[in-house]
Design a protein around this nucleic acid. Structure first.
Lengths: 211, 211
DNA sequence: ACCTGAACACCGTTCAAGT
DNA sequence: ACCTGAACACCGTTCAAGT
């Protein structure tokens, strides 16, 4: 259909398919169907499914805002963390895909270099910079998957989700969980706010390390 | 073979298979082969592959040491975090499996309840306890996958890994990455030490929140 | 140069038939 | 009660054949 197929269009279509129907629905055959072509034709533009997944991972990393060298290190780390979380929220399959494949693509490498560069420039030693990077990315990559695994399935708003939890709990069992869920139902918050809380904890401690 | 098959044995064998050959090698047919039985026979003990994966997730959570109520909250959080990381290191497929399925099993629920209970008892408000829990678990669940995605593939010791990185980098590109890798090659550290660093950052900030 | 059709080895799952 | 054999609808991938 419309113009001829190429690698870029194939990878983009794969990302859309994964976004809409989940990564487990991403199938060479289904992707071909969506592009109006047989599955076998995709092999003219992509070496195989592995290559397709590599392409998706690299395009996702490219969506994350890189820290610009000018700004304060803490603000730079905050911005790129927030940007990464938004990307992982748009593409729930992305975090798992990236860290099952390692930072191989050129986008990933310059991402790593920029983050480490910002930390070194701020005055962290190479060893601490590496550790700080790992701590931040562990949190960043872990957060969205943790968040979405907690908010159970189909609940429309977050208060409803908390009430679902409460309803599913046997009376009296899990009192602390019930207490927290009740509190949450009264004043719910979103994933952006929750993410900021944990991010602030890590950044505050890093700042103290610098003094 | 040896005795008759049952759900427990099937789930354990699935975990062993996933540990040894990767979660993507876990196949009903391969699992049957390993148990000396046709794939179809497994359906006598397990409702399907989804049920099998649920069983694996629950057994993994059961391997994590629960905090005992007696000890100081910070020490309790540290212990359960270290225990969880060890479990995820033994079972690299576990973190992804658990947070793609949500905390449904009874083991997961008492795990959540105990952690929240410890935080509430320490004096955190329900809202802060929930946020602290989420921050800690995002880090814990994210760490091992991040770590193993960084240490590229086949390097025997960690120094060798760093040298591999350096060799793969085009001369002069990625200077900060090269700097950190060189430093790491001189004095490498293990995953346990790296995990402790980030964990300490989060716990220290939480402690300050309590004052 | 790109696409199709058919094939191959592999999945998860069901079900009648055996013991 | 548990297992087998065969079948079904689905995978990823290859390759000769078409245009």
């Amino acid at each position: 259909m419309r113009d001829t197929l190429n690698r870029e269009r194939v990878v983009r279509a794969a990302m859309d398919l994964a976004d809409e129907r989940g990564i487990e629905s991403l199938t060479m055959r289904e992707l071909g169907r969506r592009l109006g072509v047989e599955a076998a034709s995709l092999y003219n533009h992509v070496a195989g499914k592995d290559d397709l997944l590599d392409g998706m991972a690299d395009l996702v990393v490219a969506e994350i805002d890189l820290p610009s060298y000018g700004v304060d290190w803490k603000e730079a780390m905050r911005r790129r963390a927030v940007s990464a979380r938004e990307v992982f929220s748009r593409h729930p399959w992305a975090a798992g895909l990236i860290d099952s494949r390692g930072p191989s693509g050129p986008c990933s490498l310059s991402y790593v270099d920029r983050v480490l560069g910002t930390l070194l420039q701020a005055g962290f030693s190479p060893g601490i910079a590496a550790n700080a990077f790992l701590a931040l990315d562990s949190y960043i990559y872990g957060f969205e998957r943790q968040w979405s695994s907690l908010s159970l399935g189909a609940a429309v708003d977050t208060t409803e989700a908390a009430e679902e939890v409460l309803a599913a709990i046997p009376q009296g069992a899990y009192p602390s969980l019930a207490c927290v869920a009740t509190d949450y139902a009264a004043k719910p918050y979103g994933d952006a706010a929750a993410f900021d809380f944990g991010l602030g904890l890590i950044l505050a401690s890093l700042e103290r390390l610098l003094e």
